[in-house]
Design a protein around this nucleic acid. Structure first.
Length: 494
RNA sequence: GGCCCCAUCGUCUAACGGUGAGGACACAGGAUUUUCAUUCCUGUAAUCGGGGUUCGAUUCCCCGUGGGGCUGCCA
């Protein structure tokens, strides 16, 4: 099956766009077909410089690479394939859209309209005042042939409109929604070719999807109401229409269409925040689709295998970030520790260069593997291994753990007494814990009263990996030095 | 206003017309005998309303209601 994604280069790639691209990609891949990327830049005014690069880059980041059409090679945007060009402004230059608009004119399914924007605006105003649906009143449909000829010769600016058959009922099947029906008289005579010679979306999509041999058009639900126009065009051009699947919209918390005002909507924002491509894809796939099992995490190959349109939801889905963050945690924990360590090493190294050559970095990284959500948190979580932490009495004491400030000097001395007798070669988390517990067994202190001051003296943090794990990774000498320093601080204050 | 689409826990969702309406996120409580996190266990929580059809409707039909989309020489 050949599918395509056809965004307009009006800005960054939208997360909703990434989802339709993903679904299209999955369908193409699972049938051994091709996925195409086409750029729809027929609106000269809305086209944004650099948007094509940005969209292609975001798609590549997500691992959704087109087999044909617009793609990235060596950092450059290129076009590849035998059905090109794949950028509509370049296709326009070939005359393909005008040609077919004229064919529709000749067959009587379209007509020229010379109405000015002012007249159209006035007409709509009046229609609304009369509580009628704003629709073109067909003034130019009834223009005598001679007048049309004269106006064209005079070079009068005009558009070409589709002549919608009012008496017809248009029925069709959508792969997600099933059968739908529209009455012809409720469908407006859509502009097909604008006065600047560019096609509108409607004409361009029909022509391009035909010539690019697209089997299935998968797009957002916002296109549902213009589908009758597209079907009519396929019919009038005497082409076989592709299948259509309209996916439900992504929603804000208040259930309106996902918008910039209420959410981060561009893929670039999620990249910048540090989400893994696997996570965004996994999350987006599950918004509006479910596997019918309790599986929650899916890799791209798993999605290719399991995705199907008949399990796609009809109603819109709220884009809820909480599950996204949970998924990110799940995916991070799936990364083998060695790989995880190598991924965060450069991040930590940026702030603490010694981490770059730390032979025991993996041991330290393993301590935060289950605690981290974003890689960029790593340096803050491991900083105490590479610089002396700031320690205060307030931090070392802890009411909940029953660590009273005035007892700190005694506790720290006790801790040093326990640890100093452990030789370098036995400096493991297990041995450290065993010996601390041995002290607890004597009955003076509870475990928390010893471990809280130990952990906070070593890390300078209220939350961190466990005391003995940190001590082991920090090594004997540094651990003892930090405890001594802590003891000096508390004795100076008492 | 008109046209079209949609409707199960707060959110994402499951359920050949027969289930105690299931799972996940979030939330609450607990366990993992130090914090945080992880992991595990438990709990709170839903079929929009009204009519049909049927022995039996979350499921099928109709009418409401609610929400959304479209209504541009934008896509």
């Amino acid at each position: 099956m050949r599918t395509r994604f056809a965004p307009s280069p009006t800005g960054f790639l939208h997360v909703g766009g990434l989802r339709t691209a993903l679904y299209s990609y999955l369908l193409a891949k699972q049938t051994g077909g091709q996925f195409l990327l086409r750029i729809e830049d027929t609106d000269q005014e809305r086209t944004v410089e650099g948007a094509v690069e940005s969209i292609v880059r975001s798609l590549a980041w997500a691992g959704i690479s087109p087999d044909e059409g617009v793609m990235m090679e060596d950092g450059l945007v290129i076009e590849r394939g035998s059905k090109g060009p794949y950028i509509q402004s370049r296709r326009q230059a070939t005359g393909i859209y005008r040609e077919h608009a004229e064919q529709l004119l000749a067959s009587g399914h379209a007509y020229r309209c010379f109405c000015t924007t002012e007249r159209l605006e006035e007409m709509r105003r009046q229609q609304e005042a009369r509580k009628q649906a704003p629709m073109y009143d067909r003034q130019c449909l009834h223009l005598p042939e001679n007048d049309v000829k004269r106006l064209i010769e005079a070079g009068t600016s005009h558009v070409i409109r589709l002549k919608v058959p009012h008496e017809r009922t248009i029925r069709f099947d959508d792969d997600i929604r099933g059968t739908m029906t529209f009455q012809g008289h409720t469908v407006d005579d859509q502009v097909l070719l604008k006065s600047d010679g560019f096609p509108t979306y409607h004409l361009a999509h029909v022509i391009d999807d035909h010539f690019m041999d697209i089997d299935l058009v998968l797009r957002g639900e916002e296109w549902l109401s213009s589908l009758p126009k597209h079907l009519l065009l396929f019919e009038y051009l005497d082409w076989k229409a592709p299948r259509f699947a309209h996916v439900p919209l992504l929603l804000n918390k208040d259930r309106t269409k996902l918008s910039k005002r209420q959410n981060a909507v561009s893929v670039e924002e999620y990249i910048a925040k540090g989400y893994l491509p696997e996570v965004l894809l996994n999350f987006l796939a599950m918004l509006g689709w479910n596997p019918g099992t309790t599986q929650e995490t899916f890799s791209l190959p798993e999605l290719v295998e399991q995705f199907s349109l008949d399990r796609v939801q009809k109603s819109g889905a709220v884009f809820d970030l909480e599950k996204l963050d949970w998924l990110q945690g799940q995916w991070i924990r799936k990364i083998p520790v060695t790989d995880f360590a190598e991924r965060i090493r450069p991040i930590v190294g940026k702030e603490y260069p010694t981490a770059l050559h730390d032979a025991d970095f993996e041991q330290k990284a393993s301590l935060i593997h289950e605690r981290i959500t974003f890689f960029h948190e790593a340096s803050a979580m491991l900083g105490y291994f590479y610089e002396e932490p700031g320690i205060t009495t307030e931090l070392l004491a802890n009411e909940k753990q029953k660590v009273k400030p005035e007892e700190l000097p005694t506790i720290l001395t006790t801790l040093l007494g326990i640890l100093e007798v452990i030789p370098e070669k036995d400096w493991t988390p297990e041995r450290l814990l065993t010996d601390v517990k041995g002290e607890v067994a004597k009955g003076t202190w509870k475990l928390g009263q010893l471990l809280w001051p130990l952990r906070s003296a070593l890390t300078g943090l209220p939350y961190s990996p466990g005391a003995v794990e940190v001590a082991a990774a920090l090594e004997r000498e540094k651990t003892l030095a930090r405890l001594k320093r802590a003891r000096e601080i508390v004795s100076a204050l008492s």
